[in-house]
Every structure is written in structure tokens, then in C-alpha cells.
């Protein structure tokens, strides 16, 4: 089973992951439009940075996901087969319980017409999440679980 690993030693804080994520999840899929007109958009991956130290973090799709437990509307769910945690925009009521319990702080508010939670969906329709694919430095890596044990 493949997982995304964060390699903070390679991250240079270029924020390309944020940009690709935001464009990918925009309506227009166009970079200028996504950033200049779709103003409720937020990237679902976040780069944290202090000086020369930085890393990108997105939803960890936890085994016992606290956001799923805390969700009062049943919008947040973990797919039993794929393990991917997603938020159903139709069901979300914007109570922010998920934000309250996510220890990684990776769920954001999307403040559009309807206020809803926004989080990484692992780009399920892509071969590889766009943040991983477009990282110039392999600071986000998609790898088999075993590889981690070797490193």
C-alpha cells in the first residue's frame, strides 16, 4: 500500500504543492482564474516555514480519524476499502468540529456561498496526488510502506 511521506530535509518552501493543489481543486482548473476569481479556494496542503526550515503537510488519512468521530453531520467519512477520508460538501454544515480535533491542523474553512470544511482528498482521480507529482525536490514522496522501514 502506497503512502505519502514528508521529507522535510528536501523542502525549500517553494509552495508549488499549494498552487497545484488549489488549481486542481478549482472549478476552472486554470491558474489565473483559480487564484484571481475563485476567491473561496484554499489549498488543502499547507507549507509551514521558519527561516530555512520548511515542510508541506496534508491530511494523514488517520486510521481512527478524529475528524470522522467528531463530525456531527456524517459528512466526514473514511472509505472502508481505500482508507481515504473525505468530506461530503452536501452534508457539511460548517460547524468546524473537524478543525477542532485534527491534531495536524490540516482541515480548513472554505468560505464560499456555503461555508464548508475543506481537506485533502488525495486526488483520487489522478495517478498520483498533484502535490507529490509536482514537487520539484521530492519533499513529498509516494512510496510503498516497506520503504519507510528501510530508511
Amino acid at each position: 500500500m502506497k503512502k505519502i511521506y514528508i521529507k522535510e530535509e528536501y523542502c525549500i518552501g517553494c509552495r508549488l504543492c499549494e498552487i497545484y493543489c488549489q488549481v486542481k481543486h478549482s472549478k476552472s482548473k486554470k491558474i489565473i482564474k483559480a487564484f484571481k476569481t475563485e476567491l473561496d479556494m484554499v489549498p488543502m496542503v499547507t507549507v509551514e516555514e521558519i527561516g530555512h526550515h520548511s515542510f508541506a503537510v496534508q491530511c494523514r488519512h488517520c486510521p481512527d480519524a478524529p475528524c470522522v468521530d467528531a463530525c456531527i453531520s456524517g459528512a466526514m467519512s473514511k472509505n472502508e476499502k481505500s482508507g481515504v477520508v473525505t468530506c461530503d460538501d452536501q452534508k457539511c454544515v460548517g460547524c468546524w468540529s473537524c478543525i477542532m480535533v485534527c491534531p495536524y491542523g490540516v482541515i480548513k474553512r472554505k468560505l464560499g456561498e456555503k461555508k464548508i470544511a475543506s481537506k485533502c482528498d488525495l486526488c483520487q482521480d489522478e495517478l498520483e496526488p498533484v502535490c507529490v507529482k509536482n514537487c520539484p525536490n521530492e519533499a513529498l514522496v509516494l512510496a510503498e510502506e516497506e520503504e519507510k522501514d528501510e530508511s
Binding site: 502506497k2 503512502k3 514528508i6 515542510f55 496534508q58 491530511c59 481515504v84
Partner: peptide, 10 residues
């Protein structure tokens, strides 16, 4: 523990 720990499943 949070950042370089568990990877995410795909």
C-alpha cells in the same frame, strides 16, 4: 511524531 511519522495511505 506528527510530521515524519506515519505516512498517508493511497
Amino acid at each position: 511524531h506528527l510530521v515524519v511519522g506515519e505516512g498517508i495511505e493511497v
